[in-house]
């Protein structure tokens, strides 16, 4: 392994070459503090305030736009009044949907107050369907995720313009839940809807970015064979968003 001192001198040499290409003959290392203008952030507060002041009518419009943009992506979208109804919907869905890789039916859901309210383990208690939750203490999450045909996540935000769910990684919210199972169901609270990508960037920035995050817009797809669109390349082949009002 290259030890840290070699890596360091290596870095200095590399950056020196870059600097030489830009300001030939410069002796000193250029410091960030002398060039703050290139790191000038735009103020996200204004956008955040505007977002927080949205009223019911605004949300009606955002939902309409989100829905419209789901269609070309082959992304199912369903409006439910509350999490109870969402739980009902998922229960019905899980009973009729068929697993792709296994015979048994397993479901994995993010550990989140909203998924708790779905009460899936109760509803499915008498069905041959096992429900797992991604609690941090569980050391078998990886295996359970692989065995599951449905993954349920709660989106941090939704973007209406592109029918996108924003998913920020957290200890009890692993990345694979929305990726490895064949069907991904995303729960999105109405007031988490944003208009466009710029608003999503503003909210992310406002909340502080400390971990990885992902934008998800529809099921996995490929057009690599004769530009023929096929869903389910590597990620989920089917995706549904439940908008909770």
């Amino acid at each position: 392994m290259i030890d840290s001192t070699t890596a360091h001198s290596n870095e200095a040499k590399f950056l020196h070459t870059v600097r030489e290409s830009l300001v030939p003959g410069a002796k000193e290392v250029r410091q960030k503090k002398d060039f703050l203008h290139i790191f000038q952030k735009t103020d996200c507060l204004q956008s955040v305030e505007r977002i927080q002041q949205r009223n019911d009518l605004d949300f009606v419009n955002l939902i309409a736009s989100f829905k419209e943009n789901c269609t070309p992506l082959n992304l199912g979208v369903h409006r439910v009044r509350n999490l109870y109804e969402a739980g009902e919907w998922i229960t019905q869905f899980a009973r009729s949907a068929e697993p792709e890789f296994d015979i048994e039916k397993h479901i994995i859901q993010h550990a989140h107050p909203d998924t708790h309210e779905l009460q899936l383990w109760k509803r499915l208690a008498n069905d041959p369907i096992t429900v797992h939750t991604t609690f941090t203490e569980d050391t078998e999450i990886a295996e359970k995720t692989r065995a599951s045909f449905i993954g349920i996540t709660v989106a941090d935000w939704g973007i209406a313009e592109s029918a996108t769910l924003v998913q920020v990684t957290a200890p009890s919210r692993p990345r694979s839940t929305s990726l490895v199972p064949s069907i991904h169901i995303g729960i999105l609270r109405k007031n988490r809807l944003l208009a466009n990508l710029a608003e999503a960037y503003a909210m992310l920035q406002h909340n502080g970015i400390n971990s990885s995050f992902t934008f998800i817009s529809g099921p996995s797809k490929t057009g690599d064979i004769e530009a023929h669109m096929v869903h389910g390349a590597h990620g989920p082949r089917e995706m549904h968003v439940l908008i909770v009002e």
């Binding site: 992506l73 973007i159 990508l197 995050f213 992902t214 934008f215 998800i216 817009s217 529809g218 996995s220």
Partner: peptide, 10 residues
Amino acid sequence: QKLSTYVSFV
């Protein structure tokens, strides 16, 4: 596209 299916930040 408006956004690709997946954009991940790591």
